[in-house]
Design a protein around this nucleic acid. Sequence first.
DNA 1: CTGTTTCCTTGATGCAGGTCAACCGGCGTG
DNA 2: CACGCCGGTTGACCTGCATCAAGGAAACAG
Lengths: 243, 243
Amino acid sequence: MTRIDLSLASEGCSACPIRHRAVCASCEGEELDRLETMKSYRSWKAGQTIAMEGDDLPFVASLVTGCATLTRSLEDGRTQMVGLLMPSDFLGRPGRRTAPYEVVAATDVTMCMFNRSDFEHLLRETPHVAERLLEMSLDELDAAREWMLLLGRKTAREKVATLLSIILRRAANDAYPLHAELPLTRDAMASYLGLTIETVSRQITALRKDGVISLVGARGIECPDLAALLTEAGDDDDGTFLS
Amino acid sequence: MTRIDLSLASEGCSACPIRHRAVCASCEGEELDRLETMKSYRSWKAGQTIAMEGDDLPFVASLVTGCATLTRSLEDGRTQMVGLLMPSDFLGRPGRRTAPYEVVAATDVTMCMFNRSDFEHLLRETPHVAERLLEMSLDELDAAREWMLLLGRKTAREKVATLLSIILRRAANDAYPLHAELPLTRDAMASYLGLTIETVSRQITALRKDGVISLVGARGIECPDLAALLTEAGDDDDGTFLS
DNA sequence: CTGTTTCCTTGATGCAGGTCAACCGGCGTG
DNA sequence: CACGCCGGTTGACCTGCATCAAGGAAACAG
């Protein structure tokens, strides 16, 4: 169920891959030392549940590697993804004990965890961290609002094109054609987009047949012309809304 | 276009109706005095635009009275409401100059405004305020996520029932049957819910015919049985997601 | 190697909600 | 008073996506 990732545990914060983007980004010297003593790593395998809706969540954490999803559900079982955590994203909320949504590892995941009440103390004493957390929360709020526009008004094709463009943009290697490995199953994509698996599959097929993207192996996608994909996405503004 | 609300301008913060819920909630004494010197009031009539998408927004503000909407749009004109500001809610983001969405007064509106860079200074110097702003932002994020569940997965009837229940709950006078005046036009409701005007109208009619609600005059609704309405809304948890 | 499971694709069909259009009542204005 | 306008309702029709169903391919276990 749980395993310690030794390669990370043995290194200090200064070698951390999310050192300069996570909630700890603005910490230096003493503050960083303090964080160092508070943190612990924990990993989950793809598909494992990190927390259930309503669970007690005694920690907060930064996602170090992998990808995790936040999902809310209705009583009859319909579900909607409401958050997608990527490396450096923050999980948990100071001042709240229970998780308001299910948290699931979409790929293998490693988190850098802090005891919640310890972290709350830290927040009160180091404005740096509080400031950075506010900034990250506001970014997430912006992302959520962009996502609302997608859910409320975009067509299935636009939704799929938008998601693919986000993933490609994240992968952001400067190679052409743009290439990325999908961190999400069709199921997770459908949950993200407020669609069914079948519709996602059909739209991906359609985009492929129209030459906007191509599939490489089981999980890879390529896009020869990002501008074309962005046009399909309905808004050709920057649309960087995964925070 | 702009007018000063004298009844508010003449009073100090201590008489402010949102004194204990807004971003200033935790301020006392000197901090409050400082806010007092920084603030100014401004009002808009229902329907007026407070800021356009992309506009420079040189202030941040607390909504004192009335109701305002935040709306994002696609290039071809489709729009989605992404925020609904009620009294005590905060508008603007420290560290950003331009509004990422259109802000419109849904009813007559009065705001308590601060110059943005002055407010940013204040934030850095008074952790109280920063803390409160973080708390409010996280509440808004929760609200946005609940809203995403609605947009992605609820049926038209559930959407309308959810919105009505939120409005009734906000109005929260203990009288029965529960009563409220709708602060939103059908248009605004449709924008909120990711539906068309026609569908909203039909669903309201349907709920009325089914005895779940009744209409009183042009803008009033009554609900004899909130539990029944919440059942129609699809989730009978508390669903308080207007922050 | 074979059976099972998981993930994905494709096809056939139905329906919720969008679109287009007409109409109604209230209200402000010339 | 007549008129136009605005917000809302209702009807007829259409379509985009969900639903139901079947089958393929890759990964894995025995």
